[in-house]
């Protein structure tokens, strides 16, 4: 089974801090930490990507 996928690319950002993110990739704004964890978990399962915490309140979805 050969699979073509974008790897090592930021697929999405999830954050509670609107001011600390920007750019061209999809950004999901969350209300609090629980919401952040939940959204990141869903995105991780949907995108088959890994959620990395860059700093408190900012998660980055990367497919490896």
């Amino acid at each position: 089974m050969s699979q073509t996928a974008l790897t090592n690319v930021i697929l999405a950002l999830v954050t509670t801090k609107k001011d600390s993110v920007g750019g061209s990739c999809p950004i999901f704004y969350c209300t609090d930490d629980d919401d952040l964890q939940k959204t990141s978990l869903y995105l991780e399962k949907i995108l088959d990507a890994m959620a990395h915490e860059v700093k408190p309140g900012v998660m980055m979805m990367v497919k490896h």
């Binding site: 959620a51 990395h52 915490e53």
Partner: peptide, 8 residues
């Protein structure tokens, strides 16, 4: 490695 999810 770095993994942000509390569940994981």
């Amino acid at each position: 490695y770095n993994t942000g999810l509390k569940d994981t």
